[in-house]
Design a protein around this nucleic acid. Structure first.
Lengths: 231, 231
DNA sequence: ACCTGAACACCGTTCAAGT
DNA sequence: ACCTGAACACCGTTCAAGT
């Protein structure tokens, strides 16, 4: 947000404690590194302080607390997605690209999934809602239905975020192995109470998450536009 | 909420430590009470032990840990929804009722929202997927598309869960006041970068969450059925 | 078999004290 | 103005010891 560290330096010869001073930007960068390397629980003010070679309390001078830090980190990742996407010609393509971009961002930074589903009015979510809303508007949906349509898409994307976040929480093994395991577990469910889940267990192992997610977006778009002409 | 003291008493003269022995069921009940009274963070093994008049370690004899306990609690709440709904005549009505039931359950027990979006393969989620899947099947969707359709609906519902969970995390004030506050904050955003959000801010204050959620479900259903005839 | 509760290894956050 | 790091008030979980 602010960059007080951009200051050039003042006098030579005095050895500084670190190569550069602490700053919100440096803290944010270190936090994202820690989150990417470990899981959600790896981000600790002690770990962060160690990586930045400072005391844990120093961080509080630049950042309000852990929630603030996480919100900023998620916003940083999502901002990269929305700014890259907004300027596409066909609004339907823009939405597709946007959704795919969120998927990829969460895949690359799984902790973002958890963070997005923690506070629906954090900056990252607002950014997404705005991007989606602009696309919906460009789609030619009547004014009164735009909020409705955008929030349905937003809700669906947050659902992905939650699902993906949790999915990664049980990893270590790779993705397909986890899916195969889950499919196997589903097959062992009681056929009387879980007929449907058992039946789709086979499809689970071979399905493509990303494809399925985009198809879901497609589905909602179809519903939005059908609704426009029908209702 | 519960009145464990209402137990009559068993034999006179021998004072029992508690009126009845510890059990998974009693622990679960106490946990749900604590979660309903406080927020998500109120459930502590120390608080739980205090309420059950036992040591914190005793709980581990009946329950694997906190994650296990939360998953069981959420499953308890969701099971009440799914078993109540399954037997409706028209599958579209069943889905509507199911979705509404989940909404109401999360409204009554906000912590369920957070828990649902924590582990996508916990029992509660499986239960929902099964219920949704059975409805989708009854809808007459072709076999290969059922998994797809059901998971889109599931994803949307999980999105609600996440959103609602977070929404409640910032309460204390009542609902409409929070919405009014958020709307006010949205109005102050930069018109250049947040034109859409600013424009819908007014609608936010007067909108009905539940109605909007059900309308979203409707939208997806429309997309599912349109897709069937079109694609 | 079941329960107790002190102890362990952590957290986020604060704050007097330093430079 | 900015940083330090011990201290505070918590966690979930374990485990020797009790009944």
């Amino acid at each position: 947000v602010s960059r007080p560290s951009a200051k050039r330096r003042v006098s030579p010869r005095t050895v500084q404690r670190r190569s550069d001073a602490l700053s919100t930007a440096r803290i944010l960068e270190a936090a994202i590194d820690i989150l990417d390397e470990g899981d959600e629980g790896a981000l600790t003010f002690r770990a962060l302080a160690a990586r930045l070679a400072t005391g844990s309390g120093a961080i509080y001078w630049h950042v309000a607390g852990k929630d603030d830090l996480l919100a900023m980190a998620a916003d940083h990742v999502i901002a990269a997605v929305t700014t890259r996407v907004t300027k596409l010609s066909k609004p339907r393509d823009a939405i597709r690209t946007l959704a795919g971009g969120v998927f990829d961002a969460i895949e690359a930074h799984p902790w973002v999934g958890g963070q997005l589903s923690r506070d629906p009015w954090q900056n990252a979510v607002l950014r997404l809602l705005e991007a989606i809303g602009q696309c919906v508007q460009a789609l030619g949906i009547p004014d009164e239905k735009q909020f409705h349509a955008a929030s349905a898409l937003m809700n669906f994307i947050l659902g992905l975020a939650a699902q993906y976040a949790a999915q990664v929480r049980l990893r270590e093994t790779d993705r397909s192995a986890v899916l195969a395991m889950t499919a196997a577990r589903w097959m062992e469910l009681d056929p009387g109470t879980y007929p449907f889940v058992r039946r789709v267990a086979a499809q689970l192992a071979e399905h493509d998450d990303r494809e399925q997610f985009i198809a879901g977006i497609e589905l909602i778009l179809r519903g939005i536009q059908t609704g426009r002409s029908v209702s």
